[in-house]
Design a protein around this nucleic acid. Sequence first.
DNA 1: TGTATATTTTAGGGGTTCCCTAAATTTAAA
DNA 2: TTTAAATTTAGGGAACCCCTAAAATATACA
Lengths: 145, 145
Amino acid sequence: MSAELSVTENEAKYLKLIYRGQCEESTKVRTTAVAKSLGVRPATVTEVIQNLSEKNLLWHRRYHGVELTKEGIAEAQKLLRKHRILEILFTDLLKYNAQRACNEASKLDYRASRSLINAICKAYGHPEICPCKKVIFSDPKCKKK
Amino acid sequence: MSAELSVTENEAKYLKLIYRGQCEESTKVRTTAVAKSLGVRPATVTEVIQNLSEKNLLWHRRYHGVELTKEGIAEAQKLLRKHRILEILFTDLLKYNAQRACNEASKLDYRASRSLINAICKAYGHPEICPCKKVIFSDPKCKKK
DNA sequence: TGTATATTTTAGGGGTTCCCTAAATTTAAA
DNA sequence: TTTAAATTTAGGGAACCCCTAAAATATACA
């Protein structure tokens, strides 16, 4: 029973960004880079990172980078699964290009329920790759048959 | 140029509720009823109503009810259009029932962009009635041809 | 190896939004 | 007209997110 602290929508944005950097691009995630990317000041990034750290979603070594914990990775993957399934919906149904689909998905992913995402996933044949060729994480609750 | 103040997601919830009461059920919208409906205290409702009133979205006569202004009605209809188009998506694509579609739509409607909604509207042939038989307001920017 | 420069973190605030309780006030009903 | 119900004020509080200025640390290069 991991007294799972909830993640705010803003924190979710950080998690997705950090995950992409750390796990998909293998770059060292730097405070300043995150700040530029999100349009806030470095001090703000440090603060949010400290909150995420208190929630055990990442590991923070002062003046060095951050590293997502197992829980942080799991949370980021849940979020990115939602994001990418929504991208599939928008490219398939609405013929959006990858960029636009990503934009719209970013506005909704955090709010989309797990069951909604799984229903969409099923409707589109359990896709494994999103429009920008990244992997779509699977959900054990999302039955293929 | 109506220096249009933005509406928070919570305020949007109030607007939708008040619109349904006032315009679709012709009931007098009472503070206590809203409070029960949203699970908050009456004093909280009064406060939010005062904010909406300052944004010129409704008219508040102390100790009597509220009445949406023209701007309030327009805003509520924009929100409900989004809500109902999303309901169409979920019932058509995912075979959700009206109730469930409404639940999911409630989580996303506020965040869905106008253009996304119009794209979905087009994809589903510009529906005019939502799953629970309410009217789907039209958007002049949503071209039928 | 120092020292200058860049990066990051702390300290100290501020604003918004949403919520609450308790005490008034006003309305409506008996 | 009194009383009960509904509503509003008054006065707080907590969560979040953001900022500037100053301190601490790391890094890069003479």
